[in-house]
Deep mutational scan, measured.
Amino acid sequence: TTFEIRVGDLRITLHNADEEEIRWAEEALRRGIHADEILRTLEERRR
């Protein structure tokens, strides 16, 4: 599944994310964390 998060002009697309990952990514985007860093962190958490 694919889920797109939008916060203002910012956007990130997550693939195969669970609800916790989606909530975490949305909050991180709101705090101004760059999408590349969010994706990198999620990848590390999945390992």
Rank of each mutant, 00 (worst) to 15 (best):
T1I: 15
E27K: 09
I22W: 05
E21M: 04
E27M: 11
T2Q: 09
A28Y: 05
R11Y: 13
H34V: 07
E44K: 03
D18L: 04
L42P: 00
L42N: 00
R23M: 12
W24P: 00
F3T: 15
E4N: 01
H15K: 08
R45G: 11
V7D: 07
R11D: 05
E4Y: 04
D9T: 01
F3Q: 14
I5Q: 03
T13C: 03
G8T: 02
A35S: 12
R23S: 11
A25F: 05
D18I: 13
R30F: 11
E26D: 07
N16V: 07
R46I: 03
V7G: 02
A25S: 07
E37M: 13
I12T: 02
R40A: 11
L10T: 13
N16G: 09
G8K: 06
I38Q: 00
E26H: 07
R46H: 10
R47Y: 15
R47K: 15
L14E: 00
T1Q: 11
E20T: 12
T41L: 12
R31G: 09
A28Q: 13
L14T: 01
R31V: 09
G32C: 06
E20R: 09
R11T: 14
I12K: 02
L10N: 08
H15T: 12
D36K: 06
E21P: 00
E4Q: 04
A35Y: 10
R45H: 09
L10Q: 15
E19T: 08
I5L: 07
R40S: 12
I5S: 01
I12G: 01
A25V: 14
D9F: 06
T1P: 07
T13Q: 06
A25N: 00
T1M: 10
E4K: 01
L29G: 03
L10V: 15
D9I: 09
A35P: 15
T41E: 15
R31M: 15
I5C: 14
R23L: 13
W24V: 02
I5H: 01
E21I: 03
A17N: 03
I5D: 05
V7T: 04
E26L: 06
I38V: 12
R47C: 14
L10K: 13
I12F: 10
D9G: 05
E27D: 11
G32F: 04
R47A: 14
D36I: 11
G32S: 02
H34G: 14
V7N: 06
E43A: 06
I33N: 05
T1F: 11
T41G: 11
W24F: 13
A17I: 07
E37Q: 07
A28T: 03
L10Y: 10
L10W: 07
A28V: 03
E26R: 10
R23H: 10
E43Y: 07
E21R: 00
R45P: 01
R40L: 14
R11Q: 06
A17M: 09
T1L: 14
R46L: 04
I33H: 07
I38D: 00
E37K: 08
N16Y: 07
L42W: 02
E21Y: 02
E37N: 08
E21T: 03
A17L: 07
G8L: 03
A25Y: 02
L42S: 01
G32T: 01
T1K: 14
V7F: 12
R46D: 04
L14G: 01
R6P: 03
E44I: 08
R23G: 10
